[in-house]
Design a protein around this nucleic acid. Structure first.
Lengths: 194, 194, 194, 194
DNA sequence: TCCTAAGCGAGACGGTACGTCTTGTCTTCCA
DNA sequence: TGGAAGACAAGACGTACCGTCTCGCTTAGGA
């Protein structure tokens, strides 16, 4: 019961940190389940008892971080959003900077399609939810809100990729400001708040 | 001499159309080189004589289409760019619509990281080159131009993904117009043309 | 522990009998490892976990039979050797007759060099050991004993080949007698027992 | 067209010496037709215009040497055979000594079954023909002559293998004498000339 | 001396085996 | 009973070789 849960939790942790360690050494594509289980000192069978495949483990590494990062700003209301000197994207730049090596390994040529598409969809969804308060005060919605969400998610995603390739220069603060500068006018126009 | 080139060209064509056919049937990830060579009636060795891996073949399928699509607007000058009623993104939406099944198969969970990252970089590069005339007349550049290019490339990329999932509704014309509506204000601001 | 050994033993048996079956159908040279594993319902990897190549498997098929055949006469002493009405070569003729199809397939043009040379060396070695009692009572050794052993091994080997091509006619008893008739005088002379 | 094209002869020579050179460097088994044609500066197609496979070329290298060696003693008559101080096997030992590296490479584990079995049969046939004069004067033939021929061929063959492994020690003369010492008594007995 | 058919080099190709790798399933034993 | 250890079937991987093929160049032998 509790004991088993603890053991299982420990196994999952081993697997997660094994993958994180391996990703720091070689491209995700090149890492085999054999590599992961060997590194985690875990039996092959045990891996499959917890995850269906490599990508499931990868997502299990990333999702908790994402939820955490997302929640830090979810409670903001419309006013803060429009007036805030720390734009929403700031937490994204900060989070990516803190895990730069990991994201560099995973969002480029040797990385994981599954994670990339999941990230794009997750960011779009989060963006959609974040902007719910705005939609409530928006005078007119000339553009499908989900389209805007995907537009912003894609823009942020590729800006992050460029920034990672650029050694995370300039600072997250500057990046977040610039991103808002590029993104805000068009999206506010689109909801009649220009 | 000419003969060899012709034979090789025919082999490449076989491989390309085999891959296109297979991509229409099953996710790219699940397609093996054995599948491709069997379908193309080509020996395994011959595949490797022409391409290093599956992704190289995939890129060879896509790049010619991309260059063609890109060139249709490369010659436009700054005036046309600013005043044109057919925005640059239009050719992208049109092209993707014409190959909707292919891109749906290749840009989602079962697709190719290599192609996605290549596409993002290619679109950023193309965007950068397309906007060269604008940069020449821009009064001030407050934002690194390459950052803008990646911002736009990501935005367009994920908008296209959403649009593909949405059965290419609404029309390419509408999409291109909406995309400009979202993208133009912020980017023009950033170069002092707001 | 024991279980693993049993499983491995069963795998080896499958492989051995698959090869024996295939050798009865087509020349050894023409049998691929793919053929063997398919017939044995065994994975390719598993084959290589047990043997380095086709010849190693072939030897593993033959060696146990040879040791068994060899041991049936190893304990004979010098008296029996000189006086015995069943000469040493008899067990060879008998063994080959019982596996005639196998040896026909494996000792001729489509066969295995590795096995042939191994057989020649094994027969020479066995001959050398069998004749140890004789050497102890031999008055003088005018010829290097190992040379005699190879002489006899080669003679027996090729006599067996001719006999196999001759449909194992005449009987093993007659052959063994004839072989002794041809071999004994010269070899006994050479050790001063003529 | 002349039935004796100089060009074709030169090509065959190139192939033969290429093979001889390669055999001196690596085991026959490990030599590919690609290796041979590259070494001989000959096109792949051309190889197949002259030989069906590697073994055919190998035999074409060996057979002329063998016929030559065989003919040096073919004219001897029965008297010379029985009284001669240079036994028949002498020419074999001499020939093998002159091509020791070649035969070492080709008659052992990495060698050619085809050549070994051909050699055994050739030697038996030659032995049979050489002994024709003896059979004419033999009072009684208690043993099938072809059996004797194969007995002697095998004995000589394996004696040669042992001798090659022994660095061709002792001299061909001694070996031929010893070989006769071992072989003659039994075979002469068998034809009633003991 | 020229001409013409052959021999030939170069090398792409289909087919197929190679030896290695990874995946997901299974079984046995230990804690 | 959960997990470590690891054998196994299935089958893809990238490489190698074989035998066939097409193409022009070269060249010998008959005109």
């Amino acid at each position: 019961m509790t004991e088993f849960d603890l053991r299982q939790q420990r196994t999952r942790d081993s697997l997660r940190s094994a993958l994180m360690a391996l990703v720091a050494e070689s491209p995700f594509e090149a890492i085999s389940i054999t590599d992961i289980t060997r590194r985690a000192r875990v039996a092959r069978k045990t891996f499959y008892a917890h995850y269906n495949d490599k990508d499931a483990l990868l997502l299990d590494c990333v999702l908790p971080m994402l939820s955490a990062a997302a929640q830090t700003v979810t409670q903001m209301n419309a006013d803060t959003l429009l007036a805030g000197n720390k734009p929403l994207s700031y937490s994204a730049f900060k989070h990516v900077q803190q895990n730069a090596d990991f994201y560099r390994a995973v969002l480029n040529a040797g990385g994981s399609v599954r994670l990339i598409t999941h990230l794009l969809d997750f960011m779009a969804q989060t963006s959609y939810e974040w902007h719910a308060p705005i939609r409530e005060v928006a005078p007119k919605m000339t553009v499908e809100p989900m389209l805007i969400a995907h537009f912003l998610a894609g823009a942020l995603f590729n800006t992050l990729r460029w920034w990672l390739a650029n050694d995370c220069q300039p600072s997250p603060e500057t990046m977040a400001y610039t991103f808002s500068q590029l993104a805000a006018p068009g999206t506010l126009d689109a909801v009649g708040l220009g």
